[in-house]
């Protein structure tokens, strides 16, 4: 029975592993950190899987565990903050010497996302994944109104970075 559950889990995980990669992409800024977080989320998903009854969609369940793991996992934050600052500075310098091409805009936006707090990263992630506000609110444990207010603030912030 255990083997059956395990097999089912691995097959489903294999099909949906992109979700985890995307969480890692938002929360980490180098490949090592990405792999570490990916592994931890995989372990947490597997631990929780026997209790997954399918009341929610598999993706919803994966978002929740993925984000929770990313937000609560202990990471050496200092070093990654330094690299992020560095990257952002680099992007800014490039941006001033280049035209506002779409490529540059994207670079800037991703750099800006990396600078957000852990909570805001979760919100923007769910937004990018086209999750509706009711579900975002449920995932984060805040009210729908507050989720909207906060999201608008993040959106405005990202837009101001592009159009100062």
């Amino acid at each position: 029975m255990d083997k059956e559950i395990e097999h089912k889990f691995i097959v489903e995980f294999e099909q949906n592993q992109n979700i985890i990669h995307k969480v890692c992409r938002i929360y980490t800024s180098n490949q090592d950190a990405h792999n570490d977080l990916f592994q931890e989320i995989a372990i947490q998903l597997w631990k929780a899987y026997p209790k997954f009854r399918g009341e929610s969609k598999l993706s919803t369940w994966m978002y929740r565990i993925g984000l929770n793991t990313a937000i609560t996992l202990y990471r050496k934050s200092k070093r990654s903050i330094v690299t992020q600052d560095f990257e952002t500075v680099l992007y800014r310098i490039e941006a001033t010497s280049y035209d506002d091409t779409e490529e540059e805009q994207l670079k800037l936006m991703y750099a800006a996302i990396h600078q957000l707090t852990d909570i805001d990263k979760a919100l923007i992630f769910l937004y990018l994944e086209d999750v509706n506000y009711r579900e975002i609110a449920e995932t984060m444990g805040i009210s729908e109104v507050n989720a909207r207010v906060r999201m608008n603030r993040i959106k405005t912030r990202l837009k101001t970075i592009l159009n100062p």
Partner: peptide, 24 residues
């Protein structure tokens, strides 16, 4: 999304049996 590496069945199997390093 297309550019993400794809883990095989065996790689996933190995991964989920590793030790967690969660804060809890």
């Amino acid at each position: 999304e297309v550019s993400f590496p794809k883990l095989s069945y065996n790689e996933i199997y190995k991964m989920i049996h590793k030790k967690s390093s969660s804060i809890v």
